[in-house]
Write a protein that binds this DNA or RNA. Structure first.
Lengths: 209, 209, 209, 209
DNA sequence: AATGAATGAGTGTTCATTCAT
DNA sequence: GATGAATGAACACTCATTCAT
C-alpha cells in the first residue's frame, strides 16, 4: 500500500503542481514563428501570438519576461531544427559532397519537410538582428557555427586546397543561402524559392569541380 | 518646352514663394534612410524622421500622405542611386566584364562612395517587402530590373553560352549580393562587409572563366 | 500696412503655432496634485490625472516624457508655492521671530490660503522620495534649502547661541512640520492639522525663550 | 483552560500535520516588511513578497484573503514590536523620565536593535494610511495608544502641570518622531537618522526642564 | 508651406487573484 | 497546506495621423 502511494503520488511538496513550462514555452515559440512569418516581428503582437497559441496574453509574460526573449528562443529553436534536419538528411550519406548538398537542402527548406514559414521567419530574424543587439548575439552565434560546419565539409571534399579557399567558399554559400531566402520571400512570384536555391547548388558544384 | 512649364505653373502668384516640394520630399526620404538604418522601419517614427530632417512632424504628412509612401519613395531613391553609381563607375569602361565588376561594387557599396547606411537600409527594406504588398511591388520591380541588367551584362561577356546560363548566374549573383549585405549588417564584427563582397567577385570571375 | 502685418501676424515661420506647453504643463502638475492628495502616486493614473485636467491621456505624454517627471515638477512647484506664501506672509514683518512663525504657517498651511490638498500631496511625495531616487534628489534639495533658511532665521533671533543650537532646532522644527503633516493626514479625525501645528509653534516659542 | 484549547482543536486527525498557520502568517508579514521598506506598498507584489518569504505566491492568498490584510497585520506587528522593545528598554528603569527616553529610543530604533527596515516600512505605512481607510483605522488606533502612553509618562514626570501641557507635548513628540523617521528615510545622506532623533531627545529634555 | 498641439487606438507589461492539481 | 500555472483588467507609454493656427 505504502509503496503504491509512493509510486502514484508525488512525494515532494514542491511537486504539488507539476511544471509545464517547457511545453508552454515551445508552444509560444512556435506561435511566434507562424505569426512572424506573416507579419514580421513588430506586428507580431503579444495578442496575436497568444491567439495563435490559444493562450491568454498574460500567460506569455508568465513564461517569458519580455517579448524579445521569445524571439531569442525562436532563433535557437530554428538553429536546432536546421541542425536536426541536416542530421536526418545526412543519414546514410557517407560522401562529404553529398552531405554538403544535404546541408543546402536543410537550410533552404527544399524537398520534403520544406517550410516556407520557417524561411520567412528566418528572413525577419535577420532584419531584427541588425537592430537588436540581443538578437544579434544569438544570430551571430548561429552564423558562426554554420560557417564553421560548412568550412569543415568543404575541407573534406577538397582537402588539398589551401586557405582561404574553404573560408571564402563557405562565406559565399552562406551569403547565397541567406540571399536566396530573402529574395524568395520578398519577390514571391517572380523568383521562386526553388530557383534561387538551385543556383546555390549549381554554384557549389562548379566551385568544387 | 520651357515656356510650357512656365505656363503650367501658377502665373499670378508668381512672386509668392516657389514650391520646394521636391527638395522637402528628398530631405524626408534621406532622413528616413538614416533613421531606418539605425532603428528599422517600425521604430523609425515620424517624430524621429522629422527631427533627423530638421522639419516639423506635421510637415511630413503634408508631403507624404502616409508613412509607407516615404518608404516607397526611399526604395525608388535607392534604386536610382545604385543606377547612377553604376553609371559613374562604368564610365569609360567599355569591357562588359569590367562593367559587371563595377555593378557589384555599386550595389555592395565598396570603394569610394561606400555607404553602410544605405546597405543597412536596403536590408530593412527587404524585410518590409516580405510583409507589405505595396513595398513588395516596388521592391520586385527593382529586383526584376537588376536581374535583367545583370543578365544582359553576362550575355555580353559570354554570348555563346546557352540559357539558362545567364539567368542562373544573374540570380546567383543577386542572391549573393543580397545575402552579403544581410550578413554584413547582422553580424558586423564577425563577417566584415568587404569579406562577403569579395567572395561574390571571386565567384563571378570563376563563373565567367 | 506692412507694419500692421508685422504686428498682427507672426513673423517667424517657427511661430506658425504658438507653444502653450508651459500652460499645459502647469495644468497637468496641478491635476496631479489634486489626484495624488486623494489616491497617492501609484493610484494617480495617467487616465485619472488627464480626466482631472480635462485633457486626453496621450497629451500628458506629449508634455511629459514619463509620469515621474510630472511628480518631479510637482515637487518643485510645491517648493515654489511655499516660498511665495512665506514671502507674502513675511511681507511687512521685520522681526525675525515673526518671520519664523510665518514660516511655520506657510508650510503647515494654516490660516487663510490653507490647502489640505497640498499638505496631503506633500506627505505622499515624502513617501515616494524614499523609494524613487529621482524624486529623492529634488526632495533633498528642497529639504536642504528649507533647513538652511530656518537655520538663518533662528540665528537672527538668537545670534549669541553657539552651534549646533540653530542646526538642531532647525532640524527639530522641520521634523515636527513634516510629522505634523503626516499625522494630520493619516489620522484625520483624531488629530486635526491645527492641533499638531500649534504644538510646533509652542515648541518654537519655548525653545527661543 | 489549556484543556479547552486542546478540545477545540481537531482530535481525530491529531497525528496529521499540525497547523503552522501562525508561523506562515508571521513569515509573510516579515517578508512584506522587508520588501516594503525597499519598494513601497504598491511595488511590493505578491510574487516579490512570496520570493522573500521563500513561499509560493498561491500560499499567500491561502493565509491572507487580500494583500491589504498582510499590510494591516504588519501595522499591528510593528506596534507590538515597539511595545516589546519599549518594555525591554524600560526594564529596570523606575524613573518615568528615563522611561520616556527609552520610549523615544524604541520608536526611533536607536541603539542596539535598531532597524532601518522597520523605520522605512513605518514611513510607507503612514502614507498608505492616508489613502486606505482600512489601514488608517489600525494606524489611528496605534497612534492613539501611543499618544495616550506618552501623555501618561509625561504626567508622571510633571504631575503638577495643568492640561493641555501633557497632551500638547505628547503630540509634539509623536510628530517629531514621525517626522524624523520620514526625513531620515527620504534624505538619507543629508540628514542621518541619529541626528534627527537626537533633536527629539533634546527637545524632550528642554520641555521637561 | 509650415507648425506643434492634440487624439485615440494599440503596445508590451504588470499583478492581485483564482484554481486545478 | 501547498504549488505554480492561468486569467483579465489594468497600467504607462507610443505613434501615425489630424488639424487649428
Amino acid at each position: 500500500m505504502a509503496t503504491t502511494i509512493l509510486v502514484n503520488q508525488p512525494v515532494y511538496p514542491a511537486m504539488a503542481r507539476p511544471s509545464n513550462t517547457e511545453t508552454r514555452r515551445s508552444e509560444i515559440v512556435q506561435a511566434l514563428l507562424t505569426v512572424m512569418a506573416r507579419h514580421g516581428y513588430e506586428k507580431a503582437t503579444i495578442q496575436l501570438i497568444a491567439r495563435e497559441a490559444r493562450l491568454s496574453p498574460g500567460l506569455l509574460h508568465y513564461h517569458f519576461k519580455h517579448k524579445q526573449e521569445i524571439l531569442v528562443a525562436l532563433v535557437e529553436a530554428l538553429a536546432d531544427y536546421a541542425e536536426h534536419r541536416f542530421a536526418r538528411l545526412c543519414d546514410g550519406q557517407s560522401q562529404p559532397r553529398q552531405q554538403l548538398e544535404a546541408y543546402l537542402h536543410a537550410w533552404l527548406s527544399l524537398g520534403e519537410g520544406a517550410s516556407p514559414e520557417r524561411v520567412a521567419a528566418w528572413v525577419m530574424i535577420g532584419a531584427e538582428a541588425v537592430r537588436q543587439p540581443e538578437v544579434r548575439t544569438v544570430y551571430q552565434r548561429v552564423i558562426e557555427a554554420e560557417l564553421s560546419r560548412l568550412r569543415g565539409l568543404i575541407q573534406q571534399v577538397q582537402p588539398h586546397k589551401p586557405e582561404p579557399f574553404a573560408s571564402t567558399l563557405a562565406a559565399s554559400l552562406l551569403a547565397m543561402i541567406t540571399g536566396s531566402a530573402q529574395l524568395a520571400c520578398a519577390t514571391r512570384d517572380i523568383m521562386p524559392s526553388a530557383y534561387a536555391a538551385q543556383a546555390a547548388i549549381d554554384y557549389l558544384r562548379q566551385a568544387l569541380a
